[in-house]
Simulated assay, not measured.
Amino acid sequence: MAPRTLPSASMRPDALASLKVLVVDDNANVQRLICDVLRAGGVGRVETADDGMRARQTLARWDPDIIFCDWNMPVMGGLELTRSIRRAAVHPDRRVPNPQVPMIIVTAHRSQKEVEEARLAGVNEFVIKPFTPAALLSRIQLVLMKPRQFIVSEAYIGPDRRRRVELAYAGPMRRMSDPDEVVDQVERTATRETISIELEALRRLISVRGGVDRETLKMTYRVLQHTSFRARQVRDAMVERASQLLIDYVDAMGGPERCDAALLDVHFKSMGQLLDIPPERSKEAAKLVSHLAAVVKHKIGRTKKAA
Rank of each mutant, 00 (worst) to 15 (best):
D160E: 08
R94E: 14
E200V: 06
I195L: 11
V295E: 14
K218V: 14
R45Y: 12
P97S: 02
V106T: 14
A15Y: 05
A201Q: 14
R4Y: 01
V127I: 03
D251Y: 10
A201F: 09
S177L: 13
R119A: 09
K269S: 12
E240Y: 07
I66F: 09
V24N: 02
E280C: 11
M73F: 05
Q225K: 15
A293Y: 04
M219T: 08
A201W: 10
R148Y: 08
H91A: 12
D265C: 12
L199E: 14
L292T: 08
M53A: 15
P97L: 06
C35W: 06
R192D: 00
Q225N: 13
D236S: 08
R175M: 04
R209D: 09
V127G: 06
G272H: 11
T48K: 07
E80P: 07
R54L: 14
I104D: 08
A55Y: 02
T58W: 07
T220W: 12
Q233C: 11
V101L: 06
A60R: 08
E193D: 15
E240F: 07
I300A: 04
M173C: 11
V208W: 05
N72I: 15
I67G: 03
S10N: 01
A307H: 13
Q185R: 12
D265N: 13
S10R: 01
S243Y: 01
A307E: 13
R188K: 12
V123H: 00
L22H: 04
P133N: 06
T189E: 15
D276W: 03
D93T: 01
G171E: 03
K283A: 15
R161F: 00
W62P: 09
L202D: 03
A9Y: 02
V90R: 15
P99Q: 01
E166Q: 03
A307V: 11
V37H: 05
T5K: 11
I206Q: 00
L16M: 09
I66Q: 11
A40T: 01
R214D: 13
P102Q: 07
L264T: 13
E116A: 13
V21I: 05
V208G: 04
V115R: 09
P159N: 01
